[in-house]
Design a protein around this nucleic acid. Structure first.
Lengths: 143, 143
DNA sequence: ATGGAGTTCCCCACTTTTCCCCACGTATTA
DNA sequence: TAATACGTGGGGAAAAGTGGGGAACTCCAT
């Protein structure tokens, strides 16, 4: 289970340190792809497979489903954790998520999200403001 | 079952003493996360798991569900009670709850809440004033 | 085919943060 | 009043994060 918020620096070579706690889970292989809200999603191989199956089974007669599948499937890349505990992010994904240096790694249960630090702060501050309103809506979803 | 209100000082390293009564319950591991109304929620591992499962199953296609999951899941951190009976609160959570030094630890049955003392006093005074009004609304919820 | 340039990968070393342990002070109880 | 327990603060050791250098491999051009 991935939880927590970590801040790490992306270096000039596009390398990003994975928080120590998550390394063993990702050591068997991981997949990064385009995520929602301008961040990247990072899955373990197993979790990725589940998601990819769902995406592949979307009806390709619907334009929205095609667009969504293209975003996530075509955006995906296998990554591996090196001896220093880092992964390498391809340039097109760094561009997509506007990652420059300061990067937030956020654990969301079955995936990690990678955010530009500034974008993350803007997003969370906005959510915090609306948290009470959002929380009330969540009661409809059983939380 | 957590009940009661305690006041402790957060030190410069972000360490907070847990009231003695609660230590055994938290000794098997605990999780702190962003709470509602600008405080932090602290759960035992078991209670956390129940909540996290609900959050993880929110549909990630809904923007509000994503925002809520990010607040609570990405906000969460495993903490452990040290030999002196303290836990370490990461900086981003201290910032979120505006914790500086004087901190209130409040027991709410299946969770603890951590509040900045001033914020706590303001909040409770306000609630006391409106208690009758609030109570009437609760009748709709079966209390 | 060979040389060169560019890219990728791996390893080493430094710096910073975290964690663990010890010690003091205050409060409480016998 | 003494003794014990709890809360608080600080210092040192270990580990994690970060950056840079060098070797190997590939791709391209001559």
């Amino acid at each position: 289970m991935f939880i927590g918020e970590y801040s790490h620096n992306l270096d000039e070579k596009g390398r990003l340190a994975v928080p120590k706690k998550f390394r063993t889970a990702l050591s068997k292989g991981a997949v990064v792809t385009r995520g929602l809200d301008n961040c990247l999603f990072l899955y373990t191989k197993d979790e990725w497979k589940k998601l990819a199956d769902k995406l592949a089974n979307l009806p390709f007669s619907q334009a929205n489903a095609r667009a969504f599948a293209r975003l996530m499937l075509a955006g995906a890349m296998d990554v591996s954790v090196d001896k220093q505990g880092r992964i390498i992010l391809p340039e097109y994904l760094r561009t997509y998520a506007s990652l420059s240096k300061e990067t937030v790694v956020a654990g969301l249960y079955n995936r990690l999200e990678l955010w530009d630090k500034t974008a993350w702060e803007t997003y969370t501050q906005q959510s915090e403001k609306e948290s009470n309103k959002i929380a009330e809506q969540m009661s409809e979803l059983g939380v």
